[in-house]
Design a protein around this nucleic acid. Structure first.
Length: 263
DNA sequence: CCAAACCCCTGCATGC
DNA sequence: TGCATGCAGGGGTTTG
């Protein structure tokens, strides 16, 4: 389940391999990935100028368009030769000497082609990136979230973008708060810690190539080793204090908490 | 207006 | 061994 660090690692690999390459043809094999009537074939014979990222969104930059890719649970990008399509490959981009394939076993991911002028509108409900937060921004955003659980708000992409279930647990651990702490019970020091440790945790994960929990896949650029750095998420014992981790549900998600490190 | 429920999907775990 | 059942999960949409 790619979150900000995994998407960033993929972005860097794709940017390196695809910048200045021209898409010759696009084949869509599963329409729901693209959405109704979207003209993804408009990128044919267009050059990829850059690849950017915002939250968990990958942004392929063309002359007149941005192609927005969200991997959701299991989406992956592969670069391959001109070999036959595999079962879970749903979109194939043909270049002069290779192909780029969107692979997604659960078909939850989405690819949208938008006009450049629609960029702001597309992201109008997206919060600041989790590795570049600011205290005043959080202070202001949290005013409308007072009775919500901390973890629910960390996962809310309209408040903070890029955090998923793994890093939400890790951030709660690092700031020493249980995930079901109400926002109104956080003090300024907690907010400073969210800003500081979100950046630290996510940047470190990027450095380690992201977190790879399902090791049977070899997703492009995402054979990361950050799973070795996780302190609570999917752990049996806390890596800080070796106390047995408590498993529960918060915000509808499987949640891991250390009863000693978190209050 | 908000929150909860539902929906999209498949692989895997569980139970019999 | 194999079949049926159910669960996970990001985020958009629908319902209450």
């Amino acid at each position: 389940m790619p979150e900000l660090p995994e998407v960033e690692v993929v972005r860097r690999v794709l940017k390196d391999k695809l910048t200045n390459k021209i898409v010759r043809k696009v084949d869509v094999f599963y329409q729901n990935i693209i959405g109704d009537g979207e003209l993804i074939n408009n990128v044919e014979n267009n050059k990829i100028l850059d690849i950017k990222r915002r939250g968990k969104w990958l942004i392929f930059v063309f002359n007149d368009y941005y192609m927005m890719s969200h991997l959701r649970m299991e989406g992956k990008w592969f670069i391959k030769d001109f070999e036959p399509k595999e079962k879970h490959e749903h979109v194939i981009f043909y270049f002069d000497d290779f192909t780029l394939r969107y692979h997604d076993t659960r078909k939850f991911g989405r690819i949208h082609l938008i006009k450049k002028e629609d960029y702001d509108d597309f992201f109008k409900n997206l919060g600041m990136d989790a590795n570049n937060l600011a205290f005043n921004y959080l202070k202001n955003k949290f005013k409308t979230q007072k009775n919500k659980d901390l973890k629910e708000v960390l996962l809310d992409q309209s408040v903070i973008s890029g955090i998923g279930n793994i890093y939400a647990d890790e951030i709660c651990l690092r700031i020493g708060r249980v995930p079901n702490t109400k926002i109104k019970d956080l003090n300024d020091k907690d907010l400073e810690n969210i800003v500081k440790y979100s950046k630290e945790i996510l940047d470190k994960s990027i450095e380690f190539g992201g977190t790879t929990i399902r090791s049977y896949t070899s997703s492009l650029g995402v054979i990361g080793h950050n799973q070795d750095n996780l302190i609570v998420h999917r752990q049996e014992y806390c890596k800080n204090c070796h106390t047995k981790i408590v498993k529960s549900k918060v915000a509808g998600r499987t949640t891991y908490t250390c009863p000693v490190c978190q209050k």
